[in-house]
Write a protein that binds this DNA or RNA. Structure first.
Lengths: 200, 200
DNA sequence: ATCGACCTACCGTCCGGTAGGTTGGCGCAT
DNA sequence: ATGCGCCAACCTACCGGACGGTAGGTCGAT
């Protein structure tokens, strides 16, 4: 029995072939982007025929959209959880917790999150509304956090909150291009970043 | 200097259709990425037939490689020029000048630079050596600048220079996703960023 | 007469998607 | 307990079209 067949068997037993397809698609989309990643590739890696994908999804775009949204959601949920857990803690501690959560999720679900960034604009077609909504919701988390930190004096009040948000998110998301698990510890990176940003 | 490079130099000196093809390819690559952008599209936008592209370039990859490398070179040259012009100036002023030059070039040559980032990894094929070399050379500019600023005390000496470089470049390059000429002035963004980063 | 610049016509390959069949297990009436 | 209908899950075989690239011809300027 091949490894692929085994994958199918175990996934079917758990009733999770949908997740298996998405995991596989995320891995391929991460390295190949939208147009490079073909349904034949995904199907072969999963261990089924291409036509069988259409039993679970209506189109290629539906698969990609699910992967991209999961990528955003993983990060969103992690950061929200970290902020809830540090309610009432010093502002600097909360920023560091948020950065740590973002970087950890970004790195821990690398297939999904990298695919999400790489595929954000897929094709000439406009970005689906569900994708735009997921990203907007996550941006709001940071909008609120930065407002809170500025009010508390942990971030300089006279600086533009929008530009600070862009700077922080840009710096963190850039890590998908240079982060290697063996080279840095996520916690160290998060601490360096928050130290560099906090009012000194 | 290789014969191929010499051909390139002479063709560029004569100007004309080669630059027109690259400008067009850059514009299409910016919005479409590597696999979405087809030779038929490029040829049609230029106003010639697809086969005629092969009179100027040997393959699609050669066109894309030229665009990507130009994108990096535009930014590289602008930042080096800005640093030469501010030799001897206060460290903070030099950081601001470098950030301004980077953002201005990034935004001024949007087709090339955005294409350069979006297409960095094009296809499953390994990134061409010329592209990796161009990026490495530009990273060195920032490596040197950050070392200089840390030595002068303008940036905190105890922070990792690598992580600071990643943070700054990530924050700046993220601007291709949010910068709109009417919404911000490049100089304002540069000043906000450098103020946020400089030791206070 | 040469040659750069461009053309028309064509190649094999792969794409996303569709049509329609096979199989195997589960609920259910007998 | 057993035969049967059903349906999820998967299959083979095929479609039209677009892809990057090639062969070989035309044409005007030097």
């Amino acid at each position: 029995m091949s490894a692929a067949t085994d994958n199918v068997a175990r996934a079917a037993a758990r009733g999770g072939s949908r997740r298996l397809i998405l995991d596989t698609a995320a891995r391929l989309l991460r390295s190949g982007g939208y147009h490079q990643t073909t349904l034949r590739e995904i199907a072969e890696a999963v261990g089924i025929r291409k036509a069988s994908l259409y039993h679970h999804f209506a189109s290629k775009e539906e698969i990609v959209e699910a992967v991209v949204n999961d990528g955003v959601r993983f990060v969103h949920d992690a950061v929200v959880a970290a902020l809830e857990k540090t309610t009432g803690a010093p502002p600097g501690r909360r920023l560091e917790a948020a950065i740590t959560a973002h970087l950890t999720a970004l790195n821990g679900q690398r297939d999904y999150t990298t695919a999400s960034f790489r595929v954000f604009t897929f094709g000439a077609t406009p970005v689906p509304e569900s994708v735009r909504a997921a990203r907007r919701a996550y941006e709001d988390v940071w909008r609120n956090l930065i407002a809170e930190l500025q009010a508390a004096g942990a971030l300089p009040k006279e600086r533009s909150p929008d530009l600070m948000r862009y700077l922080i998110l840009g710096a963190m998301n850039g890590s998908i291009d240079w982060f290697r698990p063996g080279r840095f510890a996520t916690a160290d990176v998060a601490q360096e970043f928050s130290t560099l940003l906090l009012a000194r």
